[in-house]
């Protein structure tokens, strides 16, 4: 348990004593929010996963695309 407490304290004091790091963490968190909560969720669905249920259907679709592109 002591080791976990030491690791926790290491990070806790590290974050607490940050100077410019605080500003950078805000930027990182905003960036990650935009990327995962907005862009990924609303604009970047996985095309094949969202359109088809099984890998077999996905294979058939891609083969169709490759052999008879439209």
């Amino acid at each position: 348990m002591l080791i976990f407490k030491k690791i926790f304290n290491f990070y806790y004091t590290g974050f607490k004593e940050m100077n410019i790091g605080k500003q950078l963490w805000i930027i990182i968190l905003i960036k990650l929010f935009i990327m995962f909560a907005i862009l990924k969720l609303f604009f970047f669905p996985n095309f094949l996963k969202s359109k088809f249920e099984t890998d077999e259907e996905r294979s058939d679709y891609v083969i169709e695309q490759l052999t008879n592109p439209k």
Binding site: G21, L24, W25, I27, L39, L48, V62
Partner: peptide, 28 residues
Amino acid sequence: GINFAIGVATGIILEFEFGTNWSNYSWF
């Protein structure tokens, strides 16, 4: 640290694009 913090995860967007815009490629 500044460069790392600003740049970190910008490459993940490329992986979003593979799945959405380049699905034939990603499958192939």
